[in-house]
C-alpha cells in the first residue's frame, strides 16, 4: 500500500517538475510547481512528518507560490518564443553536466545501501502526531535556539531589504 502511494506520488512529482522547466508560459510553470509542491507535501505525510507537511502547504503552496503567480500576472508577459538561454552546443553541454551530476548522485546512493541502521517509526495516530509536534518544538527552542534567533534577525533584514528594493524607480513606470 505504502509502495503504491510512493510510486504514484513520485510519478506526479517528477512529471510536474519536468513540466515546470519545459512549459513555455511562466504562469503555467508556476501552476505546475504548485502541483508538485502539493504532491511533495503528501509525500511528507507518507513519511510521518505531519507538521512539516502542513508547513510545506502553508508556506510554499499558500504563500510563496501565490506571490509568484501575482508577480507574473502583474508583468503581463507576451508569449516567449525561445525559452532556453543557450544554443545547441552549450545546451547539450549543460544537460550533459547535469546528467553527470545525477549519475554521480545515483552512484553514491547505490554505494551507500546498507550503511545506515534503518529503524523507521510506526504510523502515528492523532495522539502521536501531537506528541511529535511537541517534541519538534522543544528541540527547536532548546537545541536550535540560536539558529532560530539568527533566522529571525535574517528575516528582519530581508524585510527591510525588500522594501528598499521595491522603492527603486525607473524605466516605464517612473513617476518623476
Amino acid at each position: 500500500m505504502e509502495g503504491l502511494l510512493f510510486y504514484i506520488l513520485a510519478a506526479f512529482i517528477l512529471v510536474f517538475s519536468l513540466a515546470v522547466i519545459v512549459v513555455a508560459n511562466p504562469i503555467f510553470s508556476a501552476l505546475f510547481l504548485v502541483l508538485s509542491m502539493i504532491s511533495l507535501a503528501f509525500m511528507f505525510f507518507l513519511l510521518q512528518a505531519y507538521f512539516i507537511a502542513t508547513v510545506q502547504l502553508i508556506v510554499y503552496a499558500g504563500a510563496v507560490m501565490v506571490l509568484f503567480l501575482m508577480v507574473l500576472m502583474l508583468f503581463d508577459l507576451k508569449k516567449e518564443i525561445d525559452i532556453f538561454s543557450s544554443g545547441q552546443r552549450l545546451g547539450g553541454l549543460k544537460i550533459a553536466s547535469a546528467g553527470l551530476l545525477t549519475g554521480l548522485l545515483l552512484w553514491s546512493i547505490h554505494y551507500s545501501i546498507g550503511l545506515f541502521q534503518l529503524q523507521p517509526e510506526k504510523v502515528l495516530d492523532a495522539q502521536g502526531q501531537m506528541e511529535q509536534t511537541k517534541t519538534l518544538s522543544v528541540i527547536l527552542f532548546t537545541k536550535y535556539l540560536f539558529a532560530f534567533e539568527a533566522l529571525g534577525f535574517l528575516l528582519l533584514l530581508i524585510a527591510i531589504g525588500v522594501v528598499a528594493l521595491s522603492r527603486i524607480k525607473g524605466g516605464t513606470h517612473a513617476r518623476d
Binding site: 505531519y50 502542513t54 502547504l57 502553508i58 499558500g62 504563500a63 492523532a126 509536534t133
Partner: peptide, 21 residues
C-alpha cells in the same frame, strides 16, 4: 481525525487564492 487538524484547516483554506487567480 488529524492530530494537527488546526494547521491542516489553515493550509487548506490558504489554497483558496488559486481558484481566484
Amino acid at each position: 481525525e488529524l492530530g494537527i487538524g488546526i494547521v491542516f484547516v489553515l493550509d487548506a483554506s490558504s489554497l483558496g487564492a488559486y481558484s481566484l487567480l
